[in-house]
Computed example of a mutant assay.
Amino acid sequence: MDEPILQPGQRLARGVCRLLRSHNFATLDEVTPRPGLRVDVMALGAKGEIWVVECKSSRADYTSDRKWEGYLEWCDRFFWAVPPEFPTEILPPDHGLIVADDFFGEIVTMAPAHPLTGPRRKAVTLKFARMAALRHHALRDPRP
């Protein structure tokens, strides 16, 4: 079976997810915490911590997207993920940085912690769990 053709941001997200899995996080890509926002990667840690990673494959990709600040209220830590050749000096300095490729990545700068409130954490965790379960079900039974 042929592997699907992935866009640059999707390949970057795959490397990020592999990295986060090696740190004992469960990951989902393309999570919608609320209408109008689509997070590239959301990760749930063993202690319930929630990380959001925004993948930017190029300068043009970064400069064309200004929704990322809306993601901050949905996570304990926020990271940028970029390929090795990305000009990291254009990124806001007060967030985490992951450098990744199609296959893996490295946390270059740990994001500062901004813990979610209890009710927000519960809502995000439930959304994450339901989305994961629904995606799993769709793989096993693709008929609606």
Rank of each mutant, 00 (worst) to 15 (best):
P115D: 03
D40I: 06
E69T: 15
C17T: 13
D94G: 13
D40M: 03
M42I: 15
L97D: 09
H114Y: 08
Q10V: 03
A138M: 14
A111P: 07
A26D: 12
S64G: 14
I5G: 01
F103N: 08
R11S: 08
I98W: 04
T88Q: 13
R121F: 01
F78T: 00
A81K: 06
R120D: 08
S22D: 11
Q10P: 01
A138P: 02
A113Y: 05
E69Q: 15
R121T: 10
H95L: 10
M42H: 07
V52W: 01
P8N: 07
D29N: 14
T27P: 08
K47H: 10
I98V: 11
R77Y: 00
Q10M: 08
E49P: 00
F78C: 00
A111R: 08
A129P: 01
P142G: 13
L44C: 07
E49V: 02
R11E: 15
S57K: 03
E3T: 11
P8W: 04
A100E: 04
K67L: 13
I50T: 05
L28S: 00
V41P: 01
M131T: 15
F104I: 05
G48L: 05
P92D: 10
G105I: 04
R11H: 09
L37Q: 13
E54P: 03
V39H: 06
H23E: 09
E85V: 10
Y71V: 06
K47N: 11
P92Q: 14
S22R: 11
R18K: 14
E73L: 11
G45W: 09
V99M: 13
V31E: 03
G48Y: 03
R38E: 15
V31L: 15
Y62C: 14
A133T: 09
T63K: 14
L20V: 02
L28A: 01
H23C: 07
E85Y: 10
L19Q: 07
P84G: 05
P144T: 02
T27E: 04
A13I: 02
M110C: 09
L6Y: 06
V99C: 08
P8D: 06
H136T: 13
P33Y: 05
H136Q: 12
D102N: 13
G70R: 06
G105K: 04
V99Y: 02
L37A: 03
E106Y: 00
M42Y: 10
T117F: 02
R77M: 00
H136R: 11
L91K: 13
L44P: 01
L126V: 05
P87I: 09
K56M: 07
L134Q: 15
H137N: 07
A81T: 08
P33E: 03
E49Q: 11
M1E: 04
R120T: 11
A43Q: 06
W51P: 00
A26T: 13
H136D: 11
L72E: 09
D76H: 06
L37S: 03
A111N: 08
I107L: 04
E3F: 12
Q10E: 13
R11D: 05
D102R: 12
D2I: 09
P92N: 11
V39P: 02
S22F: 03
Q7G: 03
T32S: 14
A123R: 14
L20K: 00
K122S: 02
D65V: 06
L44F: 07
S58C: 06
R14C: 06
R18L: 12
H114R: 15
A60K: 14
P84Y: 10
L97Q: 11
V82Q: 00
L19A: 07
P112W: 06
R59H: 14
W74G: 00
H114T: 11
T88C: 14
